[in-house]
Write a protein that binds this DNA or RNA. Sequence first.
DNA 1: TTGTAAGCGTTATCAC
DNA 2: GTGATAACGCTTACAA
Lengths: 329, 329
Amino acid sequence: MKRKGSSPTMKDVAREAGVALGTVSKVFNGIPVGEEYKRRVEEAARQLGYQVNNYARALKTNRTRTAALILPNTVNPFFALLAGDVCKALARRGYRMLLALSDADPDAEQQCVRMVEQNKVDGIIGLTYNPALEINESVPFVSIDRYFGPAVPCVASDNFGGGQMAARKLMELGCERLLFFRIGSDVPGEADKRGDGFQAACQQAGIGCSTLLLRDEDGYEPFRAFLREHLRDGKLDFDGIFCNTDRLAYHVCRMLQGMGVNVPGDAQVIGFDGVRRFGSEALYCSTIAQPVTQIAETAVDILLQEDRGHLPSLICLPVSYIGDGTTKG
Amino acid sequence: MKRKGSSPTMKDVAREAGVALGTVSKVFNGIPVGEEYKRRVEEAARQLGYQVNNYARALKTNRTRTAALILPNTVNPFFALLAGDVCKALARRGYRMLLALSDADPDAEQQCVRMVEQNKVDGIIGLTYNPALEINESVPFVSIDRYFGPAVPCVASDNFGGGQMAARKLMELGCERLLFFRIGSDVPGEADKRGDGFQAACQQAGIGCSTLLLRDEDGYEPFRAFLREHLRDGKLDFDGIFCNTDRLAYHVCRMLQGMGVNVPGDAQVIGFDGVRRFGSEALYCSTIAQPVTQIAETAVDILLQEDRGHLPSLICLPVSYIGDGTTKG
DNA sequence: TTGTAAGCGTTATCAC
DNA sequence: GTGATAACGCTTACAA
């Protein structure tokens, strides 16, 4: 590794090149300047290893070319994917990404907002759980997976459509007794529509649908109890189960296995997310996959949109079904 | 969500509080000031929703209280964990984290460095693959998993010790014919010592050890071919396999399963990393777990150390064995 | 086209 | 202890 010396300023470059300060600035901002001057400035800059000081520039221009991403954590593979894709989407547009982790705690989320506000970010993308989050009006905000109201753009998967898709797929694959399992946060979010879509599709098809809706604090055990209750003579009352996350689906499959119920033979299971082992390999189960890259790309596009007049309020991106082992197709 | 109005400056606060600009600054920097003045400033600041402008502050002080983390990606669960832990370690010390993703591409890594340098970060933590990385001397750098030389602090797991640990554990569990599988990057790194440690322990114990060392580009198939070659009458020539990552171990287990070799009955397998399903649940295999949180904490500590005079050059943090399914204990 | 100078929001150095 | 004032490194009118 080479380690070059310390930071020269524009003044140094100007002196070295024998031109005025303003000229140097112009060169670095692509403003036309005499060919010979330009050459000299570039040469001097290269020689001194000059780099513009973004902090000084931002102070003047009020644009930091930095955006913040607020996320509960980075270990949840969906969040990890999102973080990566948002970072890349921003980088492609010449923006830097500040990452702030909240642990899904409302107070911590507010602190994250304060922190990045102080840092004069040009915008914030947040996947948050605090419905009363206070954000300075002057900083653009795009929400992911949580709808705050018409004034705050929200991008999410087509959760409702995904739920419908799961129900229809299960029916198409021969299921007749459907079950929906849900675990998640207390605070309402777009992801709740997964169940809504599932139930709507069932109703539309004229078949019933049992449900068990829990909160994260409840853990996975109640699902096991529920399944046991609905197990008669080794046969499950249901032949198609939709879980609102791949993680839950994974647990359900293991529980069923433990009870001697064959998946997908006796019961087919579909999860939601499209999470992969080691972040990029095999799926854990048949699933409704979220278009993570597209979510990131869209969120960034909206965030950086110049015209802040008429922004979309809710954007739902298309999901897709991927069969992988826990369904018959 | 509430959205409060735009950004007042110190000047506004000073006017509102009826004090001088300098006094406001002092209040926000914890410099003693008259009790009554302090109260008035704080009141005014609260009323106006004032927050210090970090960019202006940094321009003056030359400290941004921001550090950068350069990582190949965020989907690899180990990297995801690291990103989270570094972010939290920095936050706890009042620092923000800029995340830059390189895709493990040397040029992109250099670009990341340039980008965060322009952003005047107070330091960079990098998990990189470019041995010729150029970093401005004036910005502190801590490397993870790659040793650049005595002048650049590197923090890593005790890879050598982990390799030894794997060998000894396998022997302890009755294995007599050991095998080491390695896949990874071309460029030398601390992780290479996993194999060194494993072989050293074998030699010390006076037992042989076969190896197959591949690069990422080779993919996993050659391992399958190797195993097939060493399968006679349904019995494998080896009864203990150490893989340099959990991911490889996972694949190897599936290959063995496909060949009718029982794990851990006929062959025991140990991986390295301690990667968990869904980022936080069950392991994929018995493993030598890396102390990710400690690595992050240590890297941050070194990075922010005031005394840049005598920094440690290589810090190896203790790993731990966790048996989970692919070994007999 | 080029150079000059004001000022972005802070901090820090002074007289007071 | 308090309050002007000069930087910090840059952009951007505006004057030359």
